[in-house]
């Protein structure tokens, strides 16, 4: 039974760990492509544009195109593989009545067998939403629509567990929708990132929005005084707690030891009184009682030496045992048997 419980516990723990790994993936930045005529092609034809803002430069895939892209980050401090997870823009997958295979049909699979999907701590991966899965692992079977809101969801490998989802508002050409750390709120928030803030496959850190601890300390504590006060406070705090614990614990143990000593003295005192009484009685009975004591001790020692005694540490006791002293059977002769001669 214990084995089954252990096995079941291991399964649950393993499942939790796996689930925890997948839940560390978050959509980190999204960019929606602009019409082809807005995309900056070469220096020469950069003037030929259809956008008011002029030609737009953007993140290009391995074919040199500038499709929409979705950046996903592993937010944990462990390595996790995003393979077998799904990306989708189809809100129909939210229908709870759908079976897993029905949902999966509406999603774009992140294939296995590509080392790039194995994300180390805080590492990012960019998927191109160009509807061309024949172009490789990093391309999805859907596209994002410019000039409209786009809903994007990331699903776990079972096609049922939603890991993260996001509605991208209408973005200006060249902008992206980025998840950044806001220090004041101590939380991640989404912002409309301007072209100079777009960071595909790089941390979304610009201006004040950085979690670089060293830079923060350098800026706010250039002389190290705050660090010294905080750190020394913590070091003292730890050791003071240890001091208090062992001071109190030592005091309690000392008190217990003292109490034991007092009890011991009391026992010795009582035993001393008994000896006085025994000696007095012995004197009064002219040693008759004393002889009995000596006999009892002698018997106990005799039996102890003959291994006929039970042993208790440091104490001689007399266990009830049939001996010649008390057994009448041993003291009497057997009745002779009468044999009848036929």
């Amino acid at each position: 039974m214990k084995r089954y419980i252990l096995f079941a516990s291991s399964l649950i723990v393993t499942a939790l760990v796996m689930a925890q790994g997948a839940h560390d993936f978050k959509i980190n930045e999204v960019s929606v492509s602009v019409p082809l005529c807005c995309q900056m092609q070469t220096e020469a034809d950069s003037a030929a544009v259809c956008c008011d803002a002029g030609p737009v430069e953007g993140y290009r895939d391995e074919y040199g195109d500038m499709p929409s892209w979705i950046e996903i980050v592993n937010t944990s401090y462990s390595t996790h593989d995003i393979r077998s997870c799904y990306l989708t823009t189809n809100r129909a997958v939210l229908n709870k009545d759908l079976s897993a295979p029905e949902r999966i049909e509406m999603m774009s699979l992140i294939p296995k067998g590509d080392a790039r999907t194995n994300l180390e701590a805080k590492q990012r991966i960019v998927f191109f939403a160009d509807g061309k899965i024949n172009r490789g692992t990093l391309h999805t079977n859907f596209t994002l629509t410019p000039g409209e809101e786009n809903w994007i969801a990331l699903y776990d490998g079972n096609g049922v567990d939603l890991l993260d989802s996001l509605t991208v508002p209408v973005l200006e050409p060249g902008h992206s929708y980025a998840r950044i750390y806001n220090k004041e709120q101590d939380a991640f928030v989404w912002i409309d990132a301007t072209p100079d803030q777009v960071t595909p496959d790089a941390p979304n850190e610009f201006g004040e929005n950085t979690d670089d601890k060293t830079a923060e300390w350098k800026k706010n504590d250039p002389h190290g005084v705050a660090m010294t006060i905080i750190a020394m406070g913590i070091v003292f705090g730890c050791l003071i707690l240890l001091f208090v614990f062992f001071y109190i614990f030592g005091w309690i143990l000392n008190r217990i030891a003292k109490l034991k000593r007092v009890q011991g003295i009391k026992q010795i005192s009582e035993a001393g009184e008994k000896i006085v009484v025994m000696a007095k009685e012995g004197a009064e009975t002219k040693g008759i009682e004393m002889e009995n004591y000596v006999a009892a001790i002698g018997l106990a020692l005799y039996e102890y030496m003959g291994n006929e005694h039970d042993v208790e540490s440091g104490v001689l006791t007399i266990e009830h045992h049939a001996t010649t002293w008390e057994s009448k059977e041993h003291l009497m002769r057997h009745t002779p048997e009468i044999h009848h001669n036929h």
Binding site: G224, M227, T228, A231, M232, V235, F236, C238, L239, I240, L242, F243, F246, Y247, G250
Partner: peptide
């Protein structure tokens, strides 16, 4: 146990050097 506090105090060396 009060000697623990000396072990804490000596760590000023670290932060002085910092």
């Amino acid at each position: 146990p009060k000697l623990m506090l000396i072990g804490a105090a000596a760590q000023f060396g670290i932060f002085g050097a910092y």
